[in-house]
Nucleic acid binder design. Structure first.
Lengths: 338, 338
DNA sequence: TGTTAGCACTCTCACCCGTTGAGTGCTAAC
DNA sequence: GTTAGCACTCAACGGGTGAGAGTGCTAACA
């Protein structure tokens, strides 16, 4: 077999086909290219080139008298071209994100919302596991009617709280005293260690071991939440905006894949570089053969890395999406990266 | 016009038509009723009765040679029949809810999830506004790297927190001292008052008015969140399970109505009794003419009342849905009531 | 050798039309 | 009041047809 590297013109035509297809979602014919993109060439010439591109596996024909549709291989080429240049963070996306971050509590779910609203695709944000978490502070905040809010803060700044019952005669100062003791003894320990050590302290807090129990529960919950990478999804309904999913059955299949976060996680597993694009069949998941996943990395301090991403039809304006993700990834890195 | 009260047999037939239509989503013919439900009557007799029922506005024909479909008026009659008896809380629904409540933090969103999963419809949970909120405690919890977690607790037990920057040389004790002062001065005040009073204290906290600013921000956010009834929605995609919405356009319209929480809120506004059923056109919203909303009230302590509900196609097993909502409403009342 | 015009060919899509079957309304008999 | 019977209506289905879009191929041209 002789080599068939595609020349500059073929590449230009291929790019035009992809652009047009992304725009219209309809198979692209030779006339369209000759009139809208390569006005110096006739449709017949384009036809010849398209025929070549098809033979090389870059194009496919839904049926003989339809135009051509780019294949996964074509998107791959296109995307590699994009990624070989510097991805330009989209300032508009960043502004969008910054504006919304004030309103919502959680930066991660906020990022997911911002991405999905901005790109109009489904957004995924992955938050890396944090195994090496150590308790930095532990505090009880008085609440009405014999309750208290237990707050645990880790050295990485993760916060969790829970309401526990305490004896009614503990006032704010008493709770603070307990908090001090607890913090003194537990600061610097990992969550696992905290759970193990709790038995020993139960005497020192006045026999009221609901506090101890509460800490143990919360520490356990925190540990289990943070021991795994977590995935947040935003704008899952956005898929309905695209004609690829105008069949309700398909849409439902897509949405149910989103429920299985464990499987989705696999998409980020082997991710090396700053950006990742997985095109349809490359993902090896039956249900996602006509989806693409675009991701950008962000830094969550201390060597941890997470990903922000978009899931949409393969027919996607990759440059625009990469720009948006890049901007939001940067913003997240700034916020979480210390 | 003479009166046309429908007799017992007509009502039985109407009920059979509704039951069958709820099950199959297909227009119901006279033969079906005569064979499956009223075996002692011939289809011709049923036809006569159906013709009467149509004239009375209880049935409609999509086209002349199709069977009949119940009208909103029919559902209304049917539902009024249900509501005149005692609604039986569904113990299975309650078990389902209780089982899940452990796993999730927030009872409200947990309820929404449980309802939608159990009924397979879209769930709404309304949480009443809490205008009379007063600050009960205010505390700063030290965090690494010159941050602190600001926690505000109200007398009703609502909690909000936010991370603020503070000067690096404030240790835990110093933060507690500030917390004490703040609590002393602000406890018992409403959130509005707190916002107004903040200026006055800015000197007393060592000139570091990031703390003041943080409190003001958080108080404002809290006030705005709690000053209005809030709506939580669960299982919005469930609508895709029903043939009524196999048209993507319709599904999208439905989903986008769900986004406009303000408008949805109106559906609960005039709700008086323990249960409410709004059928299609009764809601006066163009987009919801073929939806129904079923709600049950719950008590959130201190005279506040909220609603749990389900939104689905008019063709809905109302008895089952009412039973489930009743059970979950009871469970919520128990949890939030005290 | 690359480009282009022309033409026959293919295939989808939209439309028409007849057939089928479900379901009705009406009438007359029980 | 109930029922059998019958004529009628209409959606749904399937086959047939024509228009349109787009291709591949060939031959001519630069």
């Amino acid at each position: 077999m002789e080599e068939h590297p595609i020349d500059a013109r073929k590449e230009r035509i291929l790019r035009a086909i992809i652009d047009d297809y992304v725009l219209t979602a309809m198979p692209v014919g030779s006339r369209t290219i000759s009139r809208k993109y390569e006005t110096s060439l006739s449709s017949a010439t384009i036809r010849n080139e398209m025929s070549d591109l098809e033979e090389l596996g870059y194009l496919a024909q839904p049926h003989v008298s339809a135009g051509r549709v780019p294949s996964a291989k074509a998107y791959r080429l296109y995307v590699d071209g994009l990624l070989s240049e510097r991805v330009q963070p989209d300032p508009e996306a960043r502004a969008y994100f910054s504006q919304r971050v004030r309103q919502m509590e959680d930066v991660i779910s906020c990022a997911a919302a911002a991405i999905s609203e901005f790109t109009r695709y489904t957004a995924v944000v992955m938050m890396p596991k944090q195994l090496d978490l150590r308790v930095s502070c532990l505090q009880l905040v008085p609440m009405p009617r014999g309750s208290a809010l237990l707050v645990i803060v880790t050295d990485t700044g993760a916060i969790r709280d829970t309401v526990i019952r305490v004896s009614e005669n503990l006032d704010g100062d008493a709770l603070y005293a307990i908090s001090r003791t607890l913090t003194e003894h537990l600061a610097g320990r990992t969550l696992q260690e905290v759970q193990e050590m709790l038995g020993a302290y139960s005497r020192q807090v006045g026999g009221d071991d609901r506090v101890i129990q509460g800490i143990a529960d919360l520490a356990a919950r925190m540990a289990s939440q943070l021991a795994f990478d977590t995935l947040t999804i935003g704008g899952s309904q956005n898929i309905l905006n695209y004609p690829e999913y105008s069949d309700v059955e398909k849409a439902r299949a897509f949405l149910s894949v989103l429920e299985e976060k464990q499987r989705l996680m696999a998409l980020f597993a082997g991710q090396g570089g700053a950006y990742g694009v997985r095109i349809g069949p490359e993902m090896g998941m039956e249900e996602m053969t006509d989806c693409s996943v675009v991701t950008a990395r962000y830094r969550a301090g201390a060597g941890h890395q997470g990903f922000v991403g978009v899931i949409g039809p393969t027919r996607m304006p990759y440059a625009r999406v990469l720009g948006a993700l890049s901007a939001i990834g940067e913003a997240l890195s700034d916020m979480l990266g210390e």
